[in-house]
């Protein structure tokens, strides 16, 4: 079995299984934890308003703007570029369509009446390049800034690596740089599989927990009468 056959077959199957099991392990594990009973009387009755924090936390408060603007902007640039490449590149969409068909027996078009749109390769390539540039910028910032360097651990650096690897190998495969296409495609798939395997066990898990965490924090703050 060659590298590509492994990456497309057993590698992908194991990565998918580990990803699904790991994510559910952590989500269910957190969800079933016992909550500490809050015995104080709520300051505000409508605690659901605290959910506003999900949105409010999506940009910095004025007071912190100067200090965090760079990280925030780069964060947005990276995430948007990454999501564009992930969800609007045709081969990716075909993969997701295949998964949806296999798991739920549905197609996007069958449910919504229109096909999931895709973008030309050039735009995807540009989005990926921007994404990689932003990732490199935040890494440099992390290494240069003494505070950030101090609070960074293996998880931060490894999560960064497994994130940039699929984008970089994807761009290499698209433009055939460095090796035969099959090799590059295999490396791309293997790097994605590494990302999937690491995902539930590192900080990348924030993709699933970030909004729930903001929401529950917001509800807690609201109950205590804090200004959001």
């Amino acid at each position: 079995m060659d590298l590509l056959a492994f990456a497309r077959g057993p590698g992908m199957q194991w990565a998918t299984a580990i990803f699904v099991a790991g994510v559910l392990w952590r989500l269910v594990g957190v969800a079933l934890l016992r909550r500490k009973p809050d015995l104080s009387a709520p300051r505000v009755a409508a605690k659901w308003k605290g959910l506003r924090l999900i949105v409010l936390r999506s940009w910095p408060r004025k007071e912190f703007l100067g200090g965090t603007a760079f990280t925030e902007v780069m964060g947005y640039v990276f995430h948007i570029g990454f999501l564009v490449a992930l969800f609007f590149y045709l081969p990716h969409v075909l993969f997701f369509a295949d998964v949806a068909q296999g798991l739920l027996g549905v197609t996007f078009k069958g449910v919504f009446g229109v096909a999931w749109p895709t973008l030309p390769g050039g735009i995807i390539y540009f989005a990926s390049a921007v994404s990689v540039a932003a990732l490199i910028a935040v890494l440099v910032h992390r290494l240069v800034n003494p505070v950030k360097r101090l609070i960074s651990n293996f998880d931060d650096y490894f999560s960064w690596f497994v994130t940039i690897a699929p984008i970089a190998t994807g761009m290499a495969a698209y433009s055939h740089i460095g090796a035969p296409y099959q090799t590059l495609l295999a490396l791309h798939l293997l790097s994605v599989e590494l990302l999937m395997v690491w995902f539930p066990f590192g900080k990348l898990m924030h993709a699933f927990t970030i909004f729930a965490a903001r929401g529950s924090t917001g509800m807690l703050f609201e109950r205590k009468g804090a200004t959001l």
């Binding site: 497309r8 998918t16 081969p91």
Partner: peptide, 12 residues
């Protein structure tokens, strides 16, 4: 080609 063998509804 993009539809790699991610498994089946059963394995997932």
């Amino acid at each position: 080609l993009a539809a790699a063998d991610w498994g089946s509804a059963k394995t997932v």
